[in-house]
Design a protein around this nucleic acid. Structure first.
Lengths: 342, 342
DNA sequence: TTGTAGGCGTTATCAA
DNA sequence: TTGATAACGCCTACAA
């Protein structure tokens, strides 16, 4: 904000060079050899005048907006899930470091779930990171086919997709196998969101897989579905308890929902882990400060966002990241909410 | 993504009108009377061709980017604070409804706290919402002076500022007065962030005000400072307990930090509220599901974001919102973490 | 009511 | 090595 608007022409005039030269300096163009002296003089003039490139002009001429977007397929996600803000945070950092802005687009109108595609059509963004897509999102494949820079979960079924995340199925399986290892047999599942969300479906699959491997028959009455929020976890747990099927452990689809589950158990007088063990997923920052501290499966959310950003920026620059699919490590973190059945 | 790029000219040709007419239809221009029949035909053609306005062209020609930004002066905020995502969520909604994109800019480089000003200089954004500024942010007044659309807290000291928020001082005072009303005298304060953040400073002021009104001498040893995260709240509480000043209640600057405080108390064997009462602020979604359910001061975060968005969009459209400073209502929510001293 | 034409600020091609 | 100059796609006086 150096008072009035300064444009490239002003810089060129003041520095006594052409606009082209200024542009070369700004873009750190190495193809052309500009004398250090000239380069220095132009840089100084830019600083003196407080000149900043106009985004619109640059965008129109280059076709690059220097904007990336993160799409969250459910507004509820953004509102309540403690995992997302961490991703946002590291993604934000990577973007800034590389000169990109970060657009957040949470889908809150279910009738237009693909509204974000307009951002692409309008050429508003250079790349897209889609977190936890719905399974029926057809638009996504069209974008990948069109070779639009796009990062999504590693399990997305498209040959050319670039993805990062972790094995939701594997992680869930790990959590449930841990419970089985403790001796639990009647293990309930409170999933964290509707099955139309890819990762929620995968986590449920992991739950089923673990039971199968241990030859435990799946009891549908032990499965309830929450809807992202603490509140929904609370309600789901209440419903589960009302069914009187006496589980000895509960696998919860994520920690955010587990917060509600723990509250419900407390309210109904169940001791954790005395009467019931609870295991979550995500290891949100609050997990270790809950009562009791929550056993969960940890993923490094900050790294998740960082790597996603790096992959996306690589794609935007025309370099296909290698490897194209990254599975982050998950780790069972045992705290005090789990114990052998009594 | 209708395959290849469609521009206005294509629409104009196919519909058999001039580019101007298409532009008028797109912009819902009411100055000019276009026959319903023509308008309809153009709209249909736009749909058939899957045409979407190019953001760069529009931006350059109109000077409007149709982007708003929210600035978070500490990256830590975004990472761990459960209040912010809710604001983000409703802000996101209002933006979409009005055809704006939402840029998130968390400041993570303390050496360049005003990097977001470049967004303004580059004309990348039409408006700015600054949440919880640092008190020393000089850039802000320059922007307001330049009449750049900007929404900030209502307490920001500039005649022309537009602000929304709530009285942090008043809300904190309310919380502490409640504790005093219960009979507490030795009330500690765990603030949620450094005093250079405006709202943290205001909440501390509220704490002091309440003590003063009740003629209770402020004991500096009862005051500790956290740093936004649960973890920092945990550590701050530990430090407080180590000082052995035997408070009977703790006022915590926000609920996020209070989660850490509760964990520390638990670990040290203090019963809440039996041995110590705890009161937080913000009423984050998790507050009522904590153990014990947290007494706190509630503000409607969703409305906060919504109103902020509305004010900002109004400003962008050149209409100064009325009133220019909005104080949202705060409400003491008494749950189970507070009781009279034993 | 519709069309023509100039301009927005940058990039990038092509001469010089 | 540098400088003109033509795009880029849209908006908007102004003209018809």
């Amino acid at each position: 904000m150096a008072g009035t608007k300064v444009i490239m022409k002003d810089v060129a005039q003041k520095a006594g060079v052409s606009i082209t030269t200024v542009s070369f300096v700004l873009n750190k163009n190495t193809q052309v050899a500009i004398p250090e002296e000239t380069r220095e003089r132009v840089s100084r003039t830019i600083r003196e005048l407080g000149y900043v490139r106009n985004a619109a002009g640059r965008h129109l001429a280059s076709g690059k907006s220097h904007m990336l977007a993160i799409v969250l397929p459910a507004a509820e996600h953004l509102r309540v899930d403690a995992f997302i803000p961490q991703i946002l945070s590291s993604l934000n950092e990577i973007c800034h470091k590389n000169g990109f802005g970060l657009l957040v687009h949470a889908i809150e109108d279910p009738t237009r779930p693909d509204a974000y595609a307009d951002l692409v059509s309008a050429n508003s963004i250079d790349g897209l990171f889609i977190l936890n897509p719905r399974v029926d999102e057809r638009q996504i494949n069209a974008l990948i086919d069109a070779e639009f820079p796009l990062v999504i979960g590693p399990g997305w079924k498209h040959d050319k997709a670039c993805g990062i995340g972790f094995s939701n199925r594997g992680a869930a399986c790990k959590a449930v196998e841990y419970l089985i290892g403790l001796g639990h047999r009647r293990i309930a599942c409170v999933n964290y969101g509707p099955a139309k969300f890819l990762t929620a479906a995968s986590r449920y699959l992991g739950y089923k897989t673990a039971l199968e491997k241990a030859a435990i028959l799946l009891d549908e009455d032990l499965v309830v579905w929450a809807d992202f929020s603490h509140e929904s976890g609370y309600r789901a747990a209440m419903e589960l308890l009302d069914r009187c099927k006496n589980p000895t452990a509960i696998f919860v689809g994520n920690d955010t929902v587990a917060i509600g589950v723990l509250a419900a158990l407390r309210e109904r007088g169940f001791a954790v882990p005395g009467d019931l063990s609870v295991v979550g997923m995500d290891d949100i920052p609050a997990a270790r400060f809950l009562y009791p501290p929550l056993t969960t499966v940890s993923v490094d959310a900050m790294e998740y966002g960082r790597r996603a950003g790096e992959m996306l920026i690589s794609l935007v620059k025309g370099v296909r990241p290698e490897p194209a699919r990254v599975y982050l490590e998950t780790k069972l973190v045992v705290r005090d909410s789990s114990a052998p059945p009594s």
